[in-house]
Design a protein around this nucleic acid. Sequence first.
DNA 1: GTCTTTTCGTAACGACCACTACACAAACAG
DNA 2: CTGTTTGTGTAGTGGTCGTTACGAAAAGAC
Lengths: 228, 228
Amino acid sequence: MVTRQRGRPRSFDRLTALEQATMAFWEHGYETTSVADLTRVMGISAPSLYSAFGDKRTLFEEVVETYAGSYGSYGNRAFTEEPTARAAIGRLLRESAELYTEPGHPRGCLMISAAVNCSTPEVEEALRARREANLTSFEDRIRRGIEAGELPPGTDARALARFSGAVLQGMSQQARDGATREDLAAVAEWAMSSWPAATPGQDAAEAPERAHAQAREKAPETPAGRGA
Amino acid sequence: MVTRQRGRPRSFDRLTALEQATMAFWEHGYETTSVADLTRVMGISAPSLYSAFGDKRTLFEEVVETYAGSYGSYGNRAFTEEPTARAAIGRLLRESAELYTEPGHPRGCLMISAAVNCSTPEVEEALRARREANLTSFEDRIRRGIEAGELPPGTDARALARFSGAVLQGMSQQARDGATREDLAAVAEWAMSSWPAATPGQDAAEAPERAHAQAREKAPETPAGRGA
DNA sequence: GTCTTTTCGTAACGACCACTACACAAACAG
DNA sequence: CTGTTTGTGTAGTGGTCGTTACGAAAAGAC
């Protein structure tokens, strides 16, 4: 049943406009993207923007939410689909190297770079909280890996999670600084090479040897389609 | 011979004001720190600021320059004083963990975080160029280390430099996100643990084993006779 | 058709931005 | 003292910020 609206219909596609706002925020950050910039790239006037999305901050929050569910969803996918902590974080880093340099959208990660310098503390804190949550999920995954015997019992889950998060954030800024996809892939491999050796029998496909020279081909891990 | 100036003497100390401006830019970034913020923390009026430092952008450039020569000088010190590439970058990362969390000034690194979101491309590019130069000096140091036999011949200097730079930048943002000194020290150790094993005879004290659990004490590296 | 509802574009709002004109104050030169 | 030079505080400049009042336009309801 198609229930049409009562008044004048909207002259633009809301999701398309949201995607265009995402690109602008992704490229220039929250503070640096003005409402005038937004109305230009979205192709609509300021009153239309405010009536469809609330104010600038609310629009940004919606952008972050949809970003997390589309561009940022590969992380959760890696965590649910990969059998081990090492495979999950390894895949996350390798796929980040691709996403961060993928043509068709700005470089790096919106949640990492869009509110670094921000005079609205709530916005800065919101992204910080998301990063913190990601770090906690890293740590939980690693801890479960230790309990499952994938990783040595003495492994410091908090430190390894923090290390992985730092590498991820470093990769994002490196991408924005001009690093190539191969550069980032090599960074990911180097980071993974410092993980404790896998317990024999677990995690067999993942490198027991180190890969110091070049970025390897994508490891033949579980077949996982990687979308948007 | 004290040559006094001709006109009315300045009522504030220029270096002190510069340091206060440094703190403001360090904490909030270039764009987010307004001239009104600056005049407030520097304790002077806008015309005094403009007459003493030029415009906001020129002041920021002077801030970055003096920052690089004071807070940022430990990097060059590590590179000139340490005998090996591994020791130099290891010391850089370990000292960064301290500086980034040191009380008395903002967290993280000004050159990494102060112009991430910036609507003045020249400012953003200026810091990017400094980061790029640091990366190049990493790479040169590592390449010389390979030539000197400290590191395996097949080592990818560019990739290892990029990895080190990414970890450094990740540590800076982690510091701003609330990581403790111990957290960052562990990140540094983890990063160093992925370096290729030292060639026997060179760099003997540096971990041939890995240090997965906790941040180690600063390693007592060999004073091996190898001039920087 | 008229009424109601919703969106549209124009054109503004006050607040803040980086920056400066101007007159006064404080030093030295003579 | 007078004249010159330089810094200071007040009070502004034009411009952009995020946001909105307002009336015309476009749809369904009747």
